[in-house]
Design a protein around this nucleic acid. Structure first.
Length: 476
RNA sequence: GACCCCGUCGUCUAGCCUGGCCCAGGACGCGACCCUUUCAAGGUCGAGAUCGCGGGUUCGAAUCCCGCCGGGGUCACCA
């Protein structure tokens, strides 16, 4: 557990945890766990106006839901940028003392004018360097960038990426008001937290040479970088709200299993042979940053749901019961105790892709049918149907034991003696008991519901049939 | 606009470094059939990619080289 490898996830708490952020966090976590390193959580809250406590809580909550545990970070102190200003100030002073940074008093209006002029000529804006050698003692602080040469970012995913210094300019480290800028904070934080591998979104690749030059100016070793591609919407543009749900929280509310979310996010842009379904342990074992794709990936809700389905099918019964309970309650229903809920879920799991669907498809376990499927009611809840229900009630009242095999034998025998097909009696019963034409295997459902409840529902259906198929009286 | 990244079935991807096993493999989705008390699940089969485009190198290129096109990202005293 002490490989010396240290990675971090550094979200800014300006909103909920986005799936792109979650994937970045996951890759960092997997990298740390695979190599026996440390995973650090740091909150980039220098933007006080947009950072809120609620957002921090929400991000922490989402990470916990995904079970991406951190070895260092909140609630311990010192992992928020707003708590680290002394560090930034100290490093800024060091750069000034070493002559690697200088103060600049160019008024924003001047800079803006220069920028406009340059844009008019369709060129890239670079700070003129007007204050470079003026030896000012106050004002914004800029990093002195070499005029010539280039910086190579050796990216673990993209390979070496070269940036010409002529493209870079003397960027601002500290603003006139004394507050440090994002790029400077990141460098100082990463060095002081002894981060060895910076795994982050592709959108930071262009800023990396600036940061690398800052490490060098500070005399620190440069960490390894890995820039993960972005998650895209169906139109191949960066995934955003207009594409639909983007926050991890939203998927949680949909009833996607956390392990499915983790599995999906990992497979989005990473692969290991032809394997699609991974447990958390397999992911940790197989993960290699070199297998992460450099191309952007379109988020596919359908495949996420398929994976959720697979994980629901494979989930431990007790765990699944615990996960689904809140969803049963959210639907205004009451779940039976674990001993009964477990077997019910076993009949439901291969029929639902999400926890929400699990409740929907098994609704009849938690309440009596509030009505009957229209078409089926017209077809089955007829005078003839009522008669058959009467026969079924009588036989069901006496069958022993009230278990699936005995029930099936009863139905098969009855169908034969009435010269009907099994399906005729089964669908009638299914409609009476669940209100629908589709359900888990009927005899399992009957056994799980219990004799009294089944007889009650058959009687209600018979009453509905006699009265022309109206909804059952006194339904749930 | 400049710079940087990316470009294999609709989607996620394998293969690309170390050319031939690839007239391109797997998965999701889609279609058909089988199984079946319903719905699912499961099984089998199938449609679906001239490997962004154009040149070149080579006996041979998805794989190597050059050019182009398309998409995305970054260019702030925002993060």
């Amino acid at each position: 557990m002490n490989s010396g490898i240290r990675v971090r996830f550094a979200p800014s708490p300006t909103g909920h945890l986005h799936v792109g952020g979650a994937r970045t966090a996951l890759f960092n976590w997997l990298f740390a766990r695979h190599h026996g390193g440390a995973f650090v959580l740091r909150i980039e809250d220098t933007d006080r106006s947009r950072s809120t406590e609620e957002n921090i809580a929400s991000i922490v909550d989402a990470l916990r839901w995904l079970e991406l545990d951190w070895d260092e970070g909140p609630p311990a102190p010192g992992y928020r940028q707003t708590e680290r200003f002394d560090l930034y100030r100290e490093h800024a002073a060091r750069l000034v003392a070493a002559g690697r940074a200088y103060h600049c008093d160019c008024p924003p209006e001047l800079l803006e004018r220069e920028r406009k002029a340059v844009e008019a000529r369709k060129e890239t804006f670079r700070y003129s360097g007007r204050c470079r050698d003026r030896g000012l003692a106050a004002g914004a602080l800029r990093l002195r960038i070499p005029d010539t040469g280039s910086t190579v970012v050796d990216d673990l995913i993209h390979g070496p990426v070269t940036f010409d210094h002529a493209q870079l300019d003397d960027w601002i480290l500290v603003r006139t008001d004394g507050t440090p800028t994002y790029n400077f904070c990141v460098v100082v934080d990463d060095v002081t937290m002894r981060i060895t591998h910076v795994i982050r979104g592709n959108d930071h690749l262009s800023n990396t040479p600036k940061q690398v030059l800052c490490y060098a100016a500070l005399g620190y070793a440069v960490p390894a970088f890995a820039h993960v591609s972005m998650i895209l919407g169906a139109d191949r543009a960066r995934l955003s709200k207009r594409h639909g749900a983007t926050s991890v929280q939203a998927y949680r509310e949909q009833g996607i299993l956390p392990e499915a979310m983790v599995n999906y996010l990992a497979r989005l842009g990473w692969s290991s042979g032809d394997q699609e379904i991974f447990t958390r342990a397999e992911l940790v074992e197989r993960f290699d940053i070199k297998d992460v794709s450099s191309a952007g990936a379109v988020f596919d809700q359908t495949k996420l749901e398929w994976l959720s389905h697979e994980h629901i099918k494979a989930a431990d019964g007790a765990r699944l019961a615990a996960l689904v309970r809140p969803f049963v309650e959210a639907a205004g229903l009451t779940a039976p105790p674990p001993a009964r809920l477990g077997p019910m879920l076993d009949t439901l799991r291969e029929r639902a892709r999400t926890l929400r669907e699990l409740v929907e498809v098994g609704r009849f376990y938690f309440e009596r049918p509030a009505g009957y499927d229209d078409k089926a009611r017209a077809k089955l809840l007829t005078p003839a149907g009522a008669e058959r229900l009467g026969v079924l009630e009588a036989r069901l009242a006496a069958v022993e034991p009230f278990a699936a095999p005995a029930l099936e034998a009863l139905y098969r025998g009855l169908a034969e003696s009435m010269s009907l097909k099994l399906v005729d009696l089964a669908q009638l019963t299914r409609l009476a008991v669940t209100g629908r034409t589709a359900s888990p295997p009927l005899f399992d459902v009957l056994a799980l519901l219990g004799r009294d409840e089944v007889l009650e529902r058959l009687r209600a259906a018979r009453a509905a049939a006699s009265s022309g198929g109206a909804p059952p009286a006194g339904a749930a």
